[in-house]
Simulated scan of single mutants.
Amino acid sequence: MTKADIVNEISNQTGIDKTTVLKSVEGFMETVKDSLVDGKNVYLRGFGSFIVKKRAEKTARNISKNTSIIIPAHNIPSFKPSKVFSSKVK
């Protein structure tokens, strides 16, 4: 399902025009991204959590050149579904 499909589905269910729904969906996504960039987690009860995971520094190998490189510590975004959401998908 794409963002356009989500906008169409919400528009059909609510009767709100697609441009308003698109602005709302994009606003939601931008707010979640901004919160994660600031290091804040986003919790949506009954749906899940958008969290920032911290990855430690590690050593990796470049097999073709037979060298080792160090990957610095970094943060990555992650989604953890709620128990209600997970049980419905199962």
Rank of each mutant, 00 (worst) to 15 (best):
K83G: 11
F47N: 00
N66V: 03
K90W: 02
K88Y: 00
N41L: 04
F85I: 03
Q13C: 06
S82N: 05
P72H: 14
F50D: 01
F50M: 04
T19A: 15
V52A: 13
E9T: 12
G48L: 00
V84A: 13
I51A: 05
F47Q: 00
S82W: 02
I6Y: 03
K90M: 07
I16K: 07
L44C: 09
V42F: 06
I63S: 11
P72G: 12
V7W: 02
S86H: 05
S35L: 06
I71T: 04
V42K: 09
P77L: 13
V25I: 14
S86M: 09
A60V: 12
V89N: 07
I70T: 15
F47M: 00
P72V: 11
R55M: 13
G39N: 08
I70G: 06
G39I: 08
A56Q: 11
G27S: 08
F79Y: 09
F85P: 10
G27W: 02
S24V: 05
K18Y: 08
G39M: 12
E57M: 13
V52D: 05
Y43T: 11
G39Y: 06
T59Y: 13
S68M: 13
G48N: 01
N66P: 01
S64F: 07
V25P: 02
T59Q: 15
T31A: 15
Q13R: 15
E57S: 14
I10S: 01
V42P: 04
V21P: 02
V25D: 03
